[in-house]
Design a protein around this nucleic acid. Sequence first.
DNA 1: TTGCCAGTTTATAACGTTTCAAAAGTTTGA
DNA 2: TCAAACTTTTGAAACGTTATAAACTGGCAA
Lengths: 343, 343
Amino acid sequence: MRSPVHGVSATSGSADRPTLKTVAELSGLAVATVSRALSNDPKIAESTRQRVAKIAREIGYVPDRAARRLRTGKTMVVSLMLDPHFEILGFGNALLVGLTTALEGSGYSLVVTPHFTDVDSLMPIRHIVTNRQADGVIFTRTAPFDERVRFLTEHKFPFVSHGRTEFSEAHSWVDYDNETFAFRAALRLVEKGCRNICAILPPDTLSFRQHLRYGLMRAVRETGVDYHIPDAITLDSSMDEINRWAQGISGERYRPDGFICPGEASYLAIRNAFRSRNMSEGKDFHAVAKSISGILSQIEPATDAIHEDVEDAGRVLAETLLALMSGRSTDARQVLQAPKMTF
Amino acid sequence: MRSPVHGVSATSGSADRPTLKTVAELSGLAVATVSRALSNDPKIAESTRQRVAKIAREIGYVPDRAARRLRTGKTMVVSLMLDPHFEILGFGNALLVGLTTALEGSGYSLVVTPHFTDVDSLMPIRHIVTNRQADGVIFTRTAPFDERVRFLTEHKFPFVSHGRTEFSEAHSWVDYDNETFAFRAALRLVEKGCRNICAILPPDTLSFRQHLRYGLMRAVRETGVDYHIPDAITLDSSMDEINRWAQGISGERYRPDGFICPGEASYLAIRNAFRSRNMSEGKDFHAVAKSISGILSQIEPATDAIHEDVEDAGRVLAETLLALMSGRSTDARQVLQAPKMTF
DNA sequence: TTGCCAGTTTATAACGTTTCAAAAGTTTGA
DNA sequence: TCAAACTTTTGAAACGTTATAAACTGGCAA
């Protein structure tokens, strides 16, 4: 595997990775010329550019990330803050796949920093910004007045959040239309004869709790149905907790007969709680669940599901961030994903 | 003494991120001294080291990754190759959480590169190695004679695989004891009265297919039970495919009456297929499933499950890789995770 | 001839680190 | 007292890029 020692290899060792210097020596040009030729600078003669490109390709030259980053300040890194909390059952994975497919070929790497949002969501973000660890940030579990949004906007640091805020100043985000989800889910339950609809909601620190609530309330107004929002449990509660809670209410006289479950885990937990009390779905209660992983379609009897395409959200998040980082479009892009009903 | 007076204010602007130079000016020392003091070089006076450390801490100095990487060649990056294929239902996520918790505070970042193993598993690895994009690699879905293992070993590049190989040369890996899993699962099924045990296996390119098969065969030998390994479907098949297949065999006269499902999806698909033919678990068939996400415990009637702790695997993978990269322990570390029975 | 201009190329200086060899400063030994 | 032998500090070079300013080409007008 050792190559013969021709002239060039004396200065740039054979096993060594080729650098601009290698290309320069091979082409007889100066390092600066090669650099500019490869970046397609029109001040460099077209013929030269082609020649350099050819040589670079032949010896497999790949620019050094560290050197570039040091010189230009661009990290070519996108940072994803994942909250391990709720990333159970495929959410985080789907997001990741979407992000990376959209990032593919862009030259950007994705580094994943897991962090529990409820501890100090700002800390990792501040670290990234002040120490230039990435060119852009993506995060989930957005709050109505999210401190991360405030901080990043203030520092003019490119970011896209999964979830909206209530700040007046516009920023880029991708969100799922949870209001429509809850609205349609509630209507469906009423249609099936439910008289008291219960919605499991995320903790009230999170934006999408309100969206879900609005959707529910709209349906309540329009149909006059009763509703209930438990405060003993949230979407973040473990399946065990939700199960116990559901068993607890199952004996109540005026218990809910319809459930809106904005997540697969909560649906399974509730359904199971009722079943262990010998109450069955479709007879003693109804439910509409948000489907993410596709697992619900494999569970009988099938419940009504409304799909959220998280992988697509990932793609859109990445594309939006890329546009933002390129500096081309400076204005905010806001994408609201439409729920996909299966009924 | 070259009056550093305007030096300080001129060179280290207030908004700028502090560098070694900033600390040097503030302490009146040379940049080289500061660098060595911060790296705790014993050749630097203890008192100086303390003073420098204090200043650095006060002004929030954080070494520049790019500069360091350029100078030393260390990227401080760990690369995870994820196969989006099978990372459905929490596997990938659990792995990620485990990895990142173990990496926390080590200074290493985790970059995620998704890649379908069956396309050209070597390509991304080769890119990482030849272009020094990471200091170490972790990957999943290991094959008996995995080309990635061969390549990385050959290039003396630190890596830990999730899954074993059959190479004679030892390398570090973390694996789940799938043989014991299958063995115990089969025994359990026999114990419940099954006479024909069917195991859903991964594609034969993957190491753990053999392990599962050995476990099954051992049980077959010891108990004399019949067995069946379908070749129409694998663990990688979609839930729909598995469901259809199971419906297909449900009518057969001598169909399997016990199923080993080394994954949650396959179990749900099979169970559901039978149920839609009005056959119920515990009566018309039995099953033992591998549980990963904890979702199975929320499904009634509960099936026998054997747990695989993927998050822990992630932690061990990261710790092993850290040790490898540190150069301290050069010899391979091999960890076999024990199955956790719930029956 | 000289000068100038457009079209190309190049030398040089950073970016922030680490490391090597060498220079200070301080003790020790005779 | 002076030099040898430490201890501690430092200047300079290098890692691979890119941006800036300057330096080459001809060619062509004066």
